[in-house]
Computed example of a mutant assay.
Amino acid sequence: MTPAPLVLLDLDGTLTDSYPGIAASARVAFTTLGLPVPGDAALRRFVGPPVVESFPRLGVPPERVPEAVAAYRGYFRTTGMWENSVYDGITEQLRTLRDAGVRLAVATSKPEVFAGPICERFGLAPLLEGVFGAPPDHVPSSKATVVAAALDALRPAGAVLMVGDREHDVHGARANGVDCLGVAWGYAQSGELRGAGAFAVVDHVDGLAAAVLAALDRPAPPGAQPGGVVSGSPRPGEAPTTGT
C-alpha cells in the first residue's frame, strides 16, 4: 500500500484572511513608537513573514524592533488574532483532501502559541494532525525551521507537499526538499510565487483540493467537485520529493 501523503498548509493568506487583525496590530505598534503608520499596501507585506523581519523592512530602527514587537503582540493576543476569518470554501477543500487519504498539518511563521488557538476557534483543528508554528520571538526561526519541525514530528513515509501564499513558503519548503504549490488568493505580489519557484499557483479556493491531488498523483474521492484554473504545470504522475 502506498503511504499516505502529507500536505503542510500555511495559515495566514492560505487558510485564513488574517490581514485585518495583523494590520491593526501593526498600526498600534507604529503609533506606540511614534513612527509614521504605513499604508495598507505596505502593511499587507506583514502577512506571512515573521514580524521581527517585517518591522525593519518598513522603517523601524533595528534597536526598536523588540519594542515594536511587544506593542504588536499586546494588541494581537487580546484582539487582533480574532480579527480573522477562514476563506470561503477552505473547510470543504480540506475535507475533500482528508477523504482522499491525505494527511494535513499547518506549518506557519505565526507563533505556535497563537496558531493553535486560531485553528481551534475557526474549526480547522479537527481536520489537522498538528499545528506547527514559530517559537517565542527571542528564539531564531524561519519558515524552513518550522517545516523541519513539522516533518520531524509527523515523520511522513509518503510524498510531502507545501501549500502557501508567499515566497517564504516556497523557500522554506525547498530548504527541506519539499515542493510548494502556491495559492493566488493570499498576499503575494504579482509573480512572487512563480519567481520563488512554486511549481504551480492555484487561482481559486475551489481548485485547491484538485490541484493538490493532481500534484500528488492521487484520485479525487467520489463526489468531489472539479477544481478551478491552475496557473503553471503540475506534474501528473510525479510526486513531490519528501523532506526526510
Rank of each mutant, 00 (worst) to 15 (best):
P5H: 13
L6R: 11
V7C: 04
L8N: 05
L8Q: 09
L8G: 09
L15D: 09
Y19D: 08
I22Q: 13
I22P: 10
A23S: 12
V37N: 02
A41F: 06
A42F: 00
L43P: 12
V47D: 01
V51S: 05
E53C: 03
F55W: 12
L58P: 04
L58I: 08
V60T: 10
P66S: 07
A71I: 04
Y72A: 08
G74M: 00
F76S: 03
T78P: 00
T79P: 08
W82N: 12
S85D: 12
E92A: 13
Q93V: 01
L97V: 04
L97D: 08
A100T: 09
G101M: 09
V102H: 05
R103M: 12
L104W: 14
T108H: 04
T108L: 07
S109P: 04
E112W: 06
E112I: 04
E112L: 02
V113Q: 06
G116W: 00
I118W: 01
A125P: 03
A125V: 07
L128P: 05
D137G: 09
T145K: 10
V146I: 12
D152F: 01
L154W: 09
P156G: 14
G158M: 08
A159Y: 01
D165Q: 10
R166K: 14
E167R: 06
E167Q: 12
H171I: 08
G172M: 11
A175T: 07
A175I: 04
V178I: 13
C180Q: 01
L181P: 02
A188S: 13
A188M: 02
Q189I: 04
S190M: 03
G195R: 07
G195P: 08
G197C: 05
G197P: 01
F199H: 15
A200V: 01
A200Q: 03
V202G: 00
D203P: 01
H204D: 13
D206K: 11
L208S: 11
A209S: 15
A211V: 10
A211I: 14
A211Q: 12
V212D: 06
V212M: 10
G223V: 08
G228I: 13
P234Q: 08
R235T: 13
P240I: 14
T242C: 13
G243Y: 02
